[in-house]
């Protein structure tokens, strides 16, 4: 029987299993070991695996992320935690030049099997500096892979695959999702005995016939809630497509859905300018123009830095009612 566990527990299971699977896997980050994780994702792992496998880093992202990248060139498989993905910006040179481009600049002689994971979301009243959503920024750089799971099952299966991947994978979670629950199969009920979800495969989270709501990360949950409203109040059948992996991208599943429903909205908590929705809507326009009965719409967070004021911050992020309202304009 699949168990119901939280997104946080799913991540922890993935880390625990990969620590067991490969002795070169090492977890490094601020407060990941003795403190048990700032968001408790690594809770209990230091006690179980010890100080060689779980290493507390000082607040020094450029330093410890760079060390992880250097170690990965020699075959260590570091899983780095950023307490907030916003802190990637102080490690930007390491993440954007060294991890992303060293393979290319060496003509393929070097590769960096590193995962950099952490929460990349707004909506928690922490102001602009701690609310960045850089998935579009990193997905823009060839050589990098960007993953953003929405459900516990995806969080576990994708993180295990990311750790086994031989390219740098930037794995973006959400503090808002850490406590959400979902069904995750136990290993013994799986063929092969473990949950591995490949990067580059989208998942249709809800089937529908009238409109495609395409999203990544927490916006997938927003779309599922919107789909419920569209069905119960407007007799509109919405399909919800969860990208899961932004780069590599499963364009076949996106296009198949659009060809079926003839309408599409991309929903994300990222900023709108050159966001993931901009990329996806452009691809839909190029590849499925004749299948569309309406323009592709994009819904993103409000185009301003994340505001602190709690009631207003709620208005900055996409909510189901907004998705419903915009969807209705397409019919």
């Amino acid at each position: 029987m699949p168990r119901e566990i939280t997104y946080r527990e799913a991540l922890k299971e993935a880390l625990d299993e990969e620590l067991a699977h490969d002795e070169n896997v090492v977890i490094i980050g601020e407060e990941v070991a003795e403190y048990n994780g700032a968001y408790k994702v690594t809770e209990g792992l230091w006690k179980k695996w010890g100080s060689k496998r779980l290493i507390d880093a000082p607040i020094s992202e450029a330093g410890f992320i760079g060390i992880g990248i250097g170690a990965s060139m020699l075959g260590v498989r570091p899983v780095m935690e950023l307490m907030f993905y916003s802190f990637a910006y102080v490690a930007f040179d390491q993440m954007m030049n060294n991890a992303a481009a060293v393979r290319y600049m060496s003509g393929g002689l070097i590769h960096c099997p590193i995962v950099v994971r952490g929460p990349a979301n707004g909506g928690t009243n922490v102001g602009a500096t701690h609310s960045h959503t850089p998935e579009n920024i990193f997905a823009n750089m060839p050589g990098l892979k960007v993953v953003s799971p929405s459900h516990p099952i995806d969080a576990k299966g994708l993180l295990k695959s990311a750790i086994r991947d031989n390219d740098p994978v930037y794995f973006m979670e959400s503090t808002v999702l850490y406590g959400t629950k979902g069904l995750v199969p136990a290993n013994e009920e799986l063929e092969g005995g473990e949950l591995l979800i490949p990067l580059g495969k989208a998942d249709v989270k809800r089937e529908g016939t009238d409109i495609s709501l395409i999203a990544h990360g927490r916006a997938v949950l927003t779309c599922l809630a919107a789909a419920e409203i569209l069905e119960s109040q407007h007799q509109i059948s919405a399909e919800v497509v969860d990208l899961r992996s932004i780069r590599p991208l499963d364009e076949e599943t996106i296009m198949a859905s659009v060809r079926k429903t003839h309408r599409a909205i991309y929903v994300e908590e990222n900023k709108p300018f050159c966001g993931i929705g901009a990329q996806i809507s452009s691809m839909i326009m190029e590849q499925a123009f004749d299948d569309l009965d309406a323009p592709v719409l994009r819904i993103a967070s409000a185009d301003a830095p994340a505001i602190y004021s709690p009631p207003l911050e709620k208005m900055q992020l996409p909510v189901p009612e907004e998705v419903v309202a915009r969807a209705l304009t397409l019919f």
Partner: peptide, 15 residues
């Protein structure tokens, strides 16, 4: 930019 990488190579040797 190479100075953290150098420490990382040393980290890997020690690890």
């Amino acid at each position: 930019g190479q100075t953290p990488l150098g420490a990382g190579i040393a980290f890997a040797l020690k690890y």
